[in-house]
Simulated assay, not measured.
Amino acid sequence: MKRIIVPIDFSVYSENALKSAAYLAKKYDAEILAVHMLELSNAIVSRSESYAQEETLFLYKLAENRFNEFLDKSYLEGLSITPIIKHFKIFSEIDQLAREEKADLIVMGSQGSSGIKELIIGSNTEKVIRYAHIPVLVVKDVPIEASFKKVVFACDFSDDDLTAYQDVKNFCQSMDCELNLVYVTTPNGRFKSTEEITQKLSKFINKAHESIELLENVKIIADYSVEEGVLYYANTVHADAIVLATHGRKGIAHFFEGSITEDIANHSQLPVMTFKI
Rank of each mutant, 00 (worst) to 15 (best):
L179Y: 05
F171T: 01
H247A: 10
A164W: 03
A63G: 08
V138N: 03
V218M: 08
V182M: 09
I32D: 03
K73L: 08
A43G: 00
T56S: 10
S20I: 02
C177I: 01
S41T: 10
L244I: 07
L62Y: 13
D95I: 00
S48D: 08
E49Y: 11
G189N: 14
I220S: 09
I264W: 02
Y183S: 09
L71A: 10
L97T: 01
A222K: 15
D159F: 08
H36V: 04
V152D: 06
V272R: 01
I106G: 01
L179E: 05
L79Y: 02
K26F: 05
N266T: 14
S20F: 01
Y224M: 13
N170Q: 12
V168R: 02
A17S: 03
E39H: 10
G109V: 03
E216C: 02
A239M: 02
L201R: 09
L214S: 11
N180R: 13
N188L: 12
P135I: 01
F255W: 12
T82S: 15
S50T: 14
S14D: 05
V272W: 00
Y28V: 04
E216D: 15
I205N: 05
M175A: 02
V218A: 08
V35F: 07
A43Y: 06
G112F: 10
Q111I: 13
A146C: 06
N170Y: 07
I120F: 15
T185K: 14
V230N: 02
L244A: 08
E49K: 07
H267E: 14
L97R: 02
D156C: 08
Y60I: 04
S80I: 13
Y60F: 15
K102E: 14
I5E: 04
A103C: 06
L179H: 08
K61V: 06
P83I: 10
D141A: 10
H36M: 05
I44L: 15
E64I: 06
L24M: 12
D141H: 13
L79S: 08
S110K: 03
V226D: 03
M37C: 04
G115D: 06
N235L: 09
V218G: 11
S20C: 00
G248S: 08
H267D: 12
S193K: 00
S225R: 10
